[in-house]
Amino acid sequence: MPLNIDVATTYVMEFIQALFIILGETYRVIATNSSVANNTADDIYYIFGLVKWLTHVGRDMLEITMANQTLMNYSVEMWQKLGTNATYALGDWSGNHGIAYIAKRGYVCAQPGQYCESYGFSETYHALQMHKWMFRALAEIGKRLSTIYP
């Protein structure tokens, strides 16, 4: 079959489905392996450390940008470019451009009798699987916290 918009749309859907599958698998490992669950609960402490320093770097970068006219010009230009091209980057209201076009094709293509009909089902199915394992994994982490952090 030659590559057309419906085939291209299924590639996008398969990619998103693959993200659900790999996330679901990650959560399944956390939920079913107690030493992994312990280590994940342990990681919370270090993740907050990462957040602290990451936002620190971000704030310093913004302060340096605001204090420097050249960087500020670039910054304004960057937002301006995104603003002028917002139709092509994000999309338009009739869904003919940008990400809105991809979403519209996904919606149209998954309608009954259309080429991607089965993809709508399997993507939803894997999204639900991911949520099932996510809830179990979060519960496994959640009930370990008061033991891990005495």
Binding site: A86, T87, A89, L90, G91, D92, W93, S94, G95, G98, I99, A100, Y101, A103, K104, Y107
Partner: peptide
Amino acid sequence: YQAGGLVKWL
């Protein structure tokens, strides 16, 4: 404004 179009189709 354009993000509104994106939200509509999503």
